Simulated assay, not measured.
Amino acid sequence: MKITYRFLLFFFSCAAFFHPIKNAVAQENWPIKPITMIIPFPPGGVADTVGRPVADALSRSLGQPVIVENRAGAGGGIGMAAVAKAKPDGYTILLALSSISIIPEADKILGKPPSYSLSQLKPIARFTADPTVLVVRSDSPWQNYYQFIDAMRKSPGKYNFGSSGNYGTMHVPMEMLKASQKFFMVHIPYTGAGPAIVGLLGGQVDAVATGPSSIVQYIKAGRVRALAHWGEGRLASLPDVPSFKEMGVPIQFAQWAGLFVPAGTSDFITNKLREASKVASNDEKVRLIINTAGSPIQYLDAPEFKAYWDADAKQMEEAVKKIGKVE
Score class of each variant (00 low, 15 high):
224 V>W: 03
229 H>F: 00
230 W>I: 01
235 L>F: 07
229 H>G: 07
242 P>E: 08
242 P>K: 11
237 S>D: 09
234 R>M: 02
233 G>Y: 00
207 A>P: 11
217 Q>S: 09
226 A>T: 06
200 L>I: 13
241 V>F: 04
204 Q>V: 02
222 G>I: 02
203 G>S: 09
240 D>S: 14
231 G>R: 01
207 A>D: 09
233 G>Q: 13
210 T>P: 00
233 G>D: 02
200 L>T: 14
230 W>D: 13
214 S>I: 08
231 G>N: 01
242 P>G: 12
204 Q>G: 02
218 Y>L: 05
213 S>P: 00
215 I>S: 06
240 D>M: 07
208 V>E: 13
209 A>Y: 03
231 G>E: 02
211 G>Q: 05
210 T>G: 07
201 L>D: 05
234 R>Q: 10
206 D>W: 13
237 S>V: 15
211 G>F: 01
228 A>F: 01
212 P>A: 06
239 P>S: 11
226 A>Q: 05
197 I>Y: 04
234 R>H: 04
223 R>Y: 03
238 L>K: 11
245 K>H: 04
229 H>V: 03
201 L>C: 12
216 V>K: 15
222 G>Y: 01
211 G>W: 01
239 P>N: 13
212 P>V: 07
220 K>L: 10
206 D>H: 15
211 G>V: 04
237 S>I: 12
222 G>W: 01
242 P>H: 04
223 R>H: 10
239 P>Q: 09
204 Q>L: 08
242 P>S: 09
220 K>P: 01
233 G>R: 10
212 P>W: 09
221 A>G: 06
228 A>L: 05
234 R>D: 02
234 R>G: 03
208 V>T: 14
239 P>W: 10
234 R>Y: 01
244 F>N: 11
235 L>E: 12
220 K>V: 06
203 G>H: 10
227 L>A: 09
200 L>E: 06
207 A>Y: 14
229 H>Y: 03
240 D>H: 10
210 T>V: 14
231 G>A: 02
243 S>D: 00
212 P>G: 10
222 G>E: 04
228 A>R: 04
240 D>C: 00
235 L>R: 06
245 K>S: 11
213 S>Q: 11
214 S>N: 04
199 G>W: 10
233 G>C: 01
241 V>R: 09
199 G>E: 13
216 V>D: 00
197 I>V: 15
223 R>C: 06
208 V>W: 08
221 A>Q: 08
225 R>N: 15
239 P>Y: 13
223 R>D: 10
199 G>K: 05
244 F>A: 05
229 H>D: 10
226 A>E: 08
233 G>S: 12
198 V>Q: 14
239 P>K: 14
221 A>K: 05
227 L>I: 12
218 Y>K: 01
210 T>L: 10
212 P>R: 07
235 L>Q: 13
200 L>K: 11
197 I>M: 13
218 Y>H: 15
215 I>A: 06
228 A>P: 05
236 A>K: 14
204 Q>R: 14
243 S>M: 04
209 A>D: 07
227 L>D: 07
203 G>E: 08
214 S>A: 15
207 A>S: 15
